[in-house]
Write a protein that binds this DNA or RNA. Sequence first.
DNA 1: CCCAGTTCTTAACCTCGCTTTAACGCCTCA
DNA 2: TGAGGCGTTAAAGCGAGGTTAAGAACTGGG
Lengths: 225, 225
Amino acid sequence: MSINVLLVEDDIDLASTVVDYLEIESINCDHAANGIQGLSLIEANDYQVILLDLNLPKLDGLSVCQKVRESSNDTPILMLTARDSLGDKVAGFDAGTDDYLVKPFEIEELLVRVIALSKRRSGQASTLNVGELALELKARSASYAGDAIKLTPITFKLLEKLMREAGKPVSRAALMQVVWGDEQPDSNSLKVHIHHLRKQLEKVGADLAIETETGFGFVLREKSA
Amino acid sequence: MSINVLLVEDDIDLASTVVDYLEIESINCDHAANGIQGLSLIEANDYQVILLDLNLPKLDGLSVCQKVRESSNDTPILMLTARDSLGDKVAGFDAGTDDYLVKPFEIEELLVRVIALSKRRSGQASTLNVGELALELKARSASYAGDAIKLTPITFKLLEKLMREAGKPVSRAALMQVVWGDEQPDSNSLKVHIHHLRKQLEKVGADLAIETETGFGFVLREKSA
DNA sequence: CCCAGTTCTTAACCTCGCTTTAACGCCTCA
DNA sequence: TGAGGCGTTAAAGCGAGGTTAAGAACTGGG
């Protein structure tokens, strides 16, 4: 099975060494020189493993990692870091890293980890379930007990976040962040979309409800009978 | 579909264990005890997968592998090696191996890989099919229920990607990446080509449609009646 | 090297529906 | 009772997607 990986690294020398070496091992290796380019390649392609430098121009490694995870992409990420500090590793794992390697590293070591991570991927889930509610992340579709639920891009993101945190209240700010990132609308958009989402859940007679945590945010939880 | 594999292994005990186990799983397994015999069986028969020991009398595994590839035979090869050294794996991939397994291995693990590799081969097939739609990759032609569909280079690539991911939405970015790589046109080229492709599908009365996932991309799926 | 046919890009325009906005009503709690 | 938080609704806006046509860029054959 041909392995497809992405290397996000601004050191051109190091990058071409890695790319060449991996290609010899018949591992196809794309390369991005900065975080922004990396993200767009990740969006466009289906990689088995992502190799991510921590210090990157335009968008640093941790942020790239966070954004990848936010878009519910769980491709294994191997962090490459020049620093050996515990703090970095901890921050890395917080951000959703699967493994890390401290520079300078043996390239053979890299190969072993890439192969190991690429194998890990087979057991990944692409469906979120809460009660009878199912969200197909890849198909971008939702259903309740078999009945399809129509979702717009925004309601999809909201439902995804609420399902990931099912039973736990999610703050208004967290929901806004998921949907709009940093440039957030200033009016009552969020409550309108929450309203749409509630209507969709009602329509299929779902046994789940989005409850309000006054002054804080919302929770998705099973209806108490 | 019956799977046909060849095991090239000089350890008779191990060989008969593997042969017996695979046959229980209704996988037909021929056996060669040395490299020369292995090669002649490979030449004579059409195997879905070749299991190749690294240390073999008369002609070692790596050489067998190289000779198979030289004769432009791309049957997947699974290398069995007693050693865990990286050097062997590297040499194996160089020689054209597709996967490896370190002895001693769990026989279930072997089964999983044999099945995976045998499937891969059909995935490399030169024809993609979705419903009655067929795409001949080598001939670069398409047809629906026998009627030819005229495709330009770009619409061909789009259809190929959509057919490979049939039923799952493909992001706009992914489609752009497939067609233009990194130097992407800045205007609405994609939607024009999608439009052309849709017209072609209509023309042959295909029971498939390219649906829009607003804010995301497109899906190829069967028309709901 | 030119021509004809094909293919690709661009731009303009239109439509549709998602998103935002704003207005209003309800409820709760000081 | 009035202020603030939330729900609901309807309408406006705005951007994404669809369609079309024109011309630029390629192509292969003469």
